[in-house]
Design a protein around this nucleic acid. Structure first.
Lengths: 327, 327
DNA sequence: CTGAAAGCGCTAACAG
DNA sequence: CTGTTAGCGCTTTCAG
């Protein structure tokens, strides 16, 4: 692969001029420009981003830590982030953490060594590990440290909305399937849901899933919800888990929404794919994704960001799983 | 961020020794080791992978071009690739191409400038663009150039198996929903399916989808398959498209598998999530993913790979959408 | 407008 | 076992 020196020599010109041409700063005569263009074309030259990064201290790369790229919510978010970052001139390092502290820690080191310009840490399982990181970090969902900007949806309110919708649809015997305790977001959905139920004097049964959706474990733990027929309304902590629960219910011969109504959380595409389609609480994925990148790039550019906590509104998306059934 | 010189100075030792310590090659006295360890800890030093890459000409990064990370098949594959690559010491640049030639071309330049050690180009829409690339490339599904190693599943045979299964299940009025013409894989599924049908003297109706699954367009184009009631068997080019078709069918009040049987392709997790669960032709995602990375790393290490075309076996995964219905 | 030169952080001879 | 040194490809003063 050719370098700036080669192309300078072939063009009969100094490397400084070539560099100026490449970066479009400083003066370069029209004559020089043309010669350079020709040689670059001829030698199929591409500037070395590594060398450039070493000097400028900006690698134009972003590390994206995500629990699991197969989770529809996270992969939709990843797609948004990737696209927006690309348009801003950044390339994404993909890091699956599987909600595993060790993996995250390990990737943190890798990202540091690659001198990424910034890090997006979604649902981080770490804390002190970030103390000595001098790379800008934006946290999504789980908080990391006080000085690290955190973005999340209004999960608490989302939980409330979920309950109110189920209640309004006539459900009184209600089950909540909650996420693991290490997910701040689903904990808030849980408390919001419970608080709203308390206000209406409705008792909620709880089942806790021990981890988020994994491709390897699609089957719902049947023992955990054996008395599924007892309920007329179920709130599941996210859409993909709701999908697995729906399959279990349909397989048990129970009709949705006639016998039991279901509501999920995320508004990931999976909800629209199911039949009946899944009522859910939407997180504005696009807004979240672009905001995360925007804030991160601000930090990278050394701009001050005063607000440390961003909470983005959630809203009800009504679909078929909570339809009122009438003959 | 501190550098090797700083840590050498603080340890009262030369940078060469520190470098040797870091790379664990050459002799370093026990005494020196200890001093270095202390200082590294103290200064929270992480070696600069960029500088290292510049010298060694191996950035330890891989560019992964993928049509769309929200497609379950591709995100499962991405997860496998990411995991395996990480274990081999490589980090992944995520590049969504959306099956768009321009985006792919653009990313190709970006990856080149970042001097990735290798590129995985899945379902490439480019050809000549790769002529001057002097970075090892592995193609998945679509062929790029004669000298570029291509890996794919046995899509032709998969198509045949799909027909035979439908036929064996008693279907005679059969529809195939095929993928866009620019997907080599789905074209082969199509011809395999048709060839098998011809052998049994069965006429197949064809509908062509104009693109792969996109989050933004979940609804099946209803006009394209208006006479859906005419069929007792449908083969859809991949699982996620099959999911959208299934929703359409169920919504039309048609029973699966009683009135119509469905078979997909990929064996992505989505098939197990649906109700009824989707019969499909499996591509061995894990095998494909690890093979791709293995071969790429061989190329990166300068090893010769003689076979240019790898075709991996596919097989039938029977589930509920093709069950024989008996009262 | 242009070029020479220093230096970003690292590795690998090579000479002790 | 260790240190000196050149150089990877680039950018940026600073003199012309």
């Amino acid at each position: 692969m050719s370098n700036i020196r080669e192309i300078a020599k072939k063009a009969g010109i100094s490397i400084a001029t070539v560099s100026r041409y490449l970066n479009d700063n400083g003066y370069v005569s029209e004559e020089a420009r043309k010669k350079i263009q020709v040689v670059i074309e001829e030698l199929n030259y591409t500037p070395n981003a590594l060398a450039r990064a070493m000097f400028t201290k900006n690698s134009k790369t972003i590390g994206l830590m995500i629990p699991n790229i197969s989770n529809p919510f996270f992969n939709q978010m990843a797609a948004i982030i990737e696209d927006y970052a690309k348009n801003m001139g950044y390339t994404i390092f993909l890091c699956n953490t599987d909600d595993d502290k060790e993996k995250e820690k390990n990737y943190l080191e890798v990202l540091q060594s690659h001198r990424v310009a910034g890090i997006i840490a979604s649902r981080s399982q770490c804390k002190e590990e970030y103390v000595n990181i001098d790379i800008p970090v934006i946290a999504f969902e789980n908080h990391i440290l006080d000085n690290i900007i955190t973005i999340s949806s209004d999960n608490y309110n989302g939980g409330k909305i979920a309950f109110e919708h189920l209640y309004q649809r006539g459900c009184r015997k209600i089950l909540h399937i909650k996420g693991p305790q290490c997910f701040e977001a689903t904990e808030l959905r849980y408390t919001g849901f419970l608080d709203a139920a308390k206000a209406k004097n409705i008792k909620i049964d709880i089942v806790e899933f021990q981890s988020d959706f994994q491709v390897k474990m699609l089957e719902v733990d049947k023992k955990s919800i054996k008395n599924i027929r007892d309920y007329d309304g179920i709130f599941v902590f996210n859409d993909i888990a709701a999908a697995t629960v729906m399959r279990f219910i349909k397989k048990s011969g129970i009709q949705i929404p006639q016998e039991v109504k279901i509501i999920g959380f995320d508004n990931s595409f999976i909800g629209e794919l199911l039949y009946p389609s899944l009522t859910t609480i939407s997180q504005p994925i696009e807004k979240l994704g672009t905001m995360i990148v925007q804030l991160l790039i601000k930090l990278i550019n050394g701009e001050e960001v005063l607000i440390k906590d961003y909470i983005i509104e959630t809203q009800l998306i009504e679909r078929e799983t909570t339809k009122v059934f009438k003959l």
